[in-house]
């Protein structure tokens, strides 16, 4: 269990809702849910949820901290925005889902083997390295995520698409040796470090 997690448990003893409100993006909306369930019914990933959004909100209110933060539910969201559009109370459900996922990740509670969680980490690492997505490296990293032979199989399956992208100049084999980057990579890294600093100090400051 991460240090931050212990800190947070200590700090928001008994009130997971308040913890969410303080630390999760758009978390202050959770209390506004009236349990109509239209979000859960509208989600195209419907049947695959362990806990649909409205239930997650109720669990937060009921203080089910571990069940929520270790759930793979919020990693299911594909940002289709159906729920936001239909929510009669105007809850930014998609954002809350991502906020919860991010928070669970920060606390080290996100399900390790969840593919979208894994993808998110790889995508972030890939992107922040140069300030540009390295399509080739990202693709390969994903293909080989579940082992070498799996990776070979997937790569072969995807080779026509790769060739197509190469022909239309969407993908360069040269990316493998470094690839393109933004103008001021070190500047970007400073920005990201600062952002993290602000985020953490904000969480510290919130007295709940």
């Amino acid at each position: 269990m991460s240090n931050l997690n212990t800190q947070m448990i200590e700090k928001y003893r008994n009130s997971f809702l308040r913890e969410v409100e303080a630390n999760v993006e758009e978390g202050e909306w959770v209390k506004m849910c009236m349990q109509c369930g239209v979000c859960s019914g509208s989600c195209p990933f419907g049947p695959h949820w362990e806990h649909p959004p409205q239930e997650i909100f109720m669990m937060i209110r009921a203080g089910k901290r571990d069940d929520v933060l270790t759930s793979d539910s919020m990693w299911m969201c594909t940002s289709c925005y159906n729920c936001i559009v239909r929510c009669p109370r105007g809850l930014p459900i998609t954002h809350i889902m991502h906020g919860l996922a991010h928070y669970a990740h920060r606390l080290g509670l996100a399900p390790k083997e969840n593919p979208t969680h894994k993808f998110a980490i790889k995508f972030w690492d890939n992107l922040t390295r140069t300030g540009r997505v390295n399509e080739l490296k990202l693709g390969l990293a994903l293909y080989f995520m579940n082992g070498f032979s799996e990776g070979i199989k997937t790569s072969l399956k995807m080779k026509d698409i790769g060739l197509g992208m190469w022909k239309t100049k969407r993908l360069s084999p040269m990316e493998i040796v470094g690839g393109h980057k933004c103008k001021d990579v070190s500047g970007l890294h400073k920005i990201l470090a600062k952002a993290r600093e602000i985020e953490e100090s904000k969480a510290q400051k919130f007295s709940g």
Partner: peptide, 11 residues
């Protein structure tokens, strides 16, 4: 009709 019965999560 499609939806979720929120009393106990029944799709």
């Amino acid at each position: 009709l499609r939806g979720v019965n929120t009393e106990g999560y029944h799709r």
